[in-house]
Computed example of a mutant assay.
Amino acid sequence: MPVEQTLVLQKSFGQPGRVRLAFEPDGPEYEDALFSHRHGRTEGRPSLLKVAVSPAGARVLRREAEVFDRVGGRHACFGALLGFRTAEDPVCLLVTRRGLPIARLDPAPRLDAVQLARAARDLFGALAALEEHGFAHRAVSPESVFWDGRRVELQELGHVQPLGPGAALAGSALATPTGLPASEMPDVQAAARVIHRLATGRHHGGPPDALLADLARIDPALAAVLAPALHAGPGPLVPPAAIAAQLVETAPRPAPARTAPEAQPAPGRRPAAPGDRDHAFRSEFRELRRQQREFRRRTAERTPSRRPRTALDAFPPPTAAPRPAPAGDGASPALFVFAGAIVLVLIIVVVLMVR
């Protein structure tokens, strides 16, 4: 089970202080002559931890940390800088990542025309963004281009070379060359070859015309735009921004919305004219009124007839006055009870007096 590692790193060149980050390995680990690569997750995001294994690797990572600090997170095809350690050993760098290097995907991806056009726009757009900051990548390859199934991302920014005078970089790690041999292939040509690999699923170092023929079978418009890049030589460079702009212009457009066809008249019947429609509306209205009259007539026939009301109906019939209660033939029972009680009291008084 992967063991989580806690790293204390500097967050940014412009902000003092350090942050504590937890790195959880969950992907491949590999090492080259410069540094080790470990794929994992940090704060829930896919991340890449690179640790220098040689002095040359330490120089490259210091440069890469500065490049990420300048451009990281400012373009969709660059990772974001999470933290770095350059003042003490081991020198390391932690950045977000998108997927895995194309060279390490198994099986190798083979993109359709829509995916391929988007990958080309992303990759050449990233090179154009680097050029705006005054750098050429100089290490575009299937190892430095990542793919996650939807988008590509350009990594390995430590090999960049300034396009202009290096006076503005004085005092930074970017002013110090890496001391490593630089690729003689222009960035635009290397990027076009990466797009060819994404299209065919194989690494083919053939001549440009053969690569263009493969691309033309998938997307002729894309092949036409990438032709100058694949033929780029050591002479005047083809600006990646110009290729990125052409890729945007030739991007596949969404199909127009389909509208339902108008209803056609039945065979042998001419289309209704506006006057015919008015006549039809009037006919329907008259038929509706006829049905209403017929309904009222039938309802009246089913209702029983009533005697016509007269003026006398306004007065209610006379009612008999209530008869007064007849006078009683004798006293009420309550009177008899009262008289009996008086007699009983008198008898008791007489008896007591006699005694």
Rank of each mutant, 00 (worst) to 15 (best):
F13V: 00
T178P: 01
D219C: 13
A260S: 10
S12H: 15
R110W: 01
I243Y: 06
S36G: 15
P16S: 00
R18H: 10
G83H: 01
A272K: 14
A227H: 07
L82P: 08
R20M: 08
R258M: 06
V19F: 07
Q15F: 15
E294S: 08
P318L: 08
H203C: 14
A199Q: 03
E156F: 04
D187K: 00
V145L: 02
L226I: 01
A216D: 08
G235K: 14
E29K: 10
G79K: 00
G44M: 06
V351D: 12
E294Y: 09
P142K: 02
V19Q: 05
R70P: 01
V71K: 04
D112F: 09
A129P: 06
D278L: 15
Q161A: 15
T96I: 05
D313I: 07
D278V: 13
P254R: 01
A167P: 10
A87M: 03
F13P: 03
E249K: 15
V225Y: 07
P107R: 01
P55I: 07
G40Q: 02
Q291S: 11
I195H: 00
G205E: 10
A257K: 04
R38H: 11
G134E: 06
P142V: 04
P267G: 00
A175G: 02
P317S: 04
G17I: 00
G27I: 09
F35E: 06
P142Q: 01
R85P: 14
V60P: 04
R38N: 03
A119K: 03
A244M: 00
F35D: 08
L49N: 06
P25C: 07
D26F: 03
F146N: 00
D214F: 11
S183I: 03
Q5P: 09
V95T: 09
R20I: 07
G149S: 02
A331H: 14
A273N: 12
V349S: 05
M353G: 13
T250M: 10
P252N: 05
Q10E: 14
T200Q: 08
G201P: 13
P333A: 08
V114P: 00
P207D: 13
A190G: 07
A192M: 05
G27D: 06
Q155V: 14
V354Q: 15
A199G: 01
R98W: 00
A251S: 05
D112Y: 11
T6S: 05
R59M: 03
P2T: 15
L127I: 08
A224G: 09
A76W: 06
G328F: 14
G328R: 15
A33V: 12
P90V: 12
G40S: 09
A76Y: 03
A311H: 14
G125W: 02
V71H: 02
P267K: 07
R41N: 12
P162I: 02
R85D: 03
H196L: 09
A103M: 10
R63L: 01
R302M: 09
R193F: 02
P2I: 07
R297N: 10
R298E: 14
A216V: 02
M1G: 13
V8F: 02
R270E: 14
V354Y: 15
P317I: 03
R38Q: 13
G17F: 01
A119H: 03
V140E: 04
